[in-house]
Amino acid sequence: MIQFNREQFRDILNSDGEFSVASEFWETDLHLGLGDFKSLLKIRDGKVIEIREAKEIEQSDILLTGPEEEWKKALEPIPKPYYHHVFSSVCFHDISWGGDIEGAMAYLGALNRVVDLLRAHARIS
């Protein structure tokens, strides 16, 4: 199972220098589905104002989802080729994104930083 403490992760993102620089002006609702552990990240003016449980895929701007086994590979400390970045994970493995792809590309650095920080802070069992 993959999970993280949502409140702690909100604070981790908001105090992270790279995320703060990359997310400037970002306004989005990001659905993050790590297997069955689903969350909605509400980001306003570059800050994560809320992370809450999302039971199903609900109204959101950007979706980033995948089966747990794929996320386990993407969240290894040194991922194998193409699991190492959100874009290559989406293009070459079974991590998927959807919704506002233009917005995802505009904020690719911030989106990848979310995954980088999950790599450091998610609990995998």
Partner: peptide, 15 residues
């Protein structure tokens, strides 16, 4: 692309 900054190029190259 007018709505995607030059930062995207660098971020894509990180991949």
């Amino acid at each position: 692309h007018p709505r995607i900054s030059n930062a995207n190029k660098g971020n894509m190259m990180m991949s």
